[in-house]
Nucleic acid binder design. Structure first.
Lengths: 216, 216
DNA sequence: CTAAAGAATGAATCTAGATTCACTTTTTGT
DNA sequence: ACAAAAAGTGAATCTAGATTCATTCTTTAG
């Protein structure tokens, strides 16, 4: 029956997600997965043409959930800055609560095919924020700026700030109430908000300086 | 003679760097390197215990150069904001001029051992900027803020903003005057400066919002 | 109930590179 | 000039996983 086949596929994907969530993508090995899912290695290839596809799909699914959460956070009706701050908090808090998964999605060294997904993953976030930022600009709640760029910068900033804590946590135990600096989150959010909100910085001085020093 | 041995080692490292600069770390293969350097594969193992070490050392060297350039850019005597803006420009401009190398250092999927180096690489930048930021705060040229965090955020923001352009460029031809949007650089720098300079954003509204929505 | 179709199996195979090592060539010291 | 010692060689081996496939088990249909 079709149902059964789909269910098995689903089961395999869930098992794969569990492996990733507990050991990152390096822990997602076909033998391992077969054991965990209670099937033979060959069976995996009845459901996925290659590991690459499987890994990519796991990434995509995990991504979809995270992106949806952030998207939802961006729907709270509030001034753009507060809205974005809230979304950033959701992003960071979720990451810190599932550090290994977050690390796998954000920073783990992965094969090229999965890395490709990661690029899209980040772009999805960027687009989400860009939309909010643009709305803020149109509303005069934010100063004029390159919404796309600011958005990308935000995503980069928060990802980078999380990498340290995540790498640390995901290497060690998992469930022992790690509570890694919530302060970090506040500080990053602050930085991003300042970046979004502030009046543009006069480039005059900067540019003169750069010209003078242009030839390294 | 010792000299000769050191010279050969140097030669091998330079060849390795060239490979990385032209094809990323995935292009750094022992056979490949041996060909390029005009030696046999076995010879490589007389100079490096394993590929891991070799790759890590290549990364370290490339890093050292980049970090030094940025460090130097941070020595220009000027107000902290201008100083940092200048350094960011140097960083970005160098990256765009050697896109494949920059991509390899910043974003290419690499084996875990090299990725370890990358973490340090980013931390080095972060420390550099943190020092400047702290100086700026002490001078009252910058508002009070978590210098370490702001610094990390800056590094993340600029890296993230460059990944798109770099990935694009490094996939294609190398030397054909690509001139990828210098605008990007200006916009990122602007964002970072706003993040550094602006007065802190009042968290009152934000926090109320977050509390209300805390349970996803 | 039986045969054809559909799934599952897992040991054997394949693969892409890194790594080794018995042997050759070059250098050094006397 | 000669013998150690050092350096170089590259085909053969190893390795870690992914992938295959001839065979066995299950389900479905008539």
């Amino acid at each position: 029956m079709r149902d059964r086949k789909a269910a098995t596929r689903e089961h395999l994907l869930i098992c794969a997600q569990q492996l990733v969530a507990s050991a990152g993508f390096s822990g997602l090995q076909m033998q391992q997965l077969a054991n965990h899912a209670g099937v033979a290695t060959g069976t995996l290839y009845r459901y996925f043409p290659a590991k690459e596809q499987l890994a990519a799909e796991v990434f995509k699914r995990a991504t979809r959930i995270e992106v949806a959460q952030v998207a939802q956070a961006l729907t709270v009706s509030a001034a753009a800055p507060a809205q974005i701050a809230h979304a950033l908090n959701v992003f960071a808090q979720r990451a810190l609560r599932a550090p290994t998964l977050a690390w796998a999605l954000i920073a783990e060294p992965v094969e090229a095919a999965v890395d490709q997904q990661r690029l899209q993953f980040r772009q999805q976030y960027a687009e989400l924020f860009a939309t909010s930022i643009q709305r803020g600009i149109d509303n005069q709640q934010l100063p004029a700026q390159n919404a796309q760029l600011s958005s990308t910068a935000i995503v980069g900033a928060i990802a980078e700030a999380l990498i340290g804590p995540l790498a640390q946590v995901s290497r060690h135990t998992e469930a022992n109430t790690p509570q890694p600096s919530t302060t970090v989150v506040d500080d990053i959010v602050q930085f991003c908000l300042r970046g979004l909100l502030a009046a543009p910085y006069s480039t005059a001085t900067t540019h003169r300086l750069i010209q003078e020093n242009a030839d390294d």
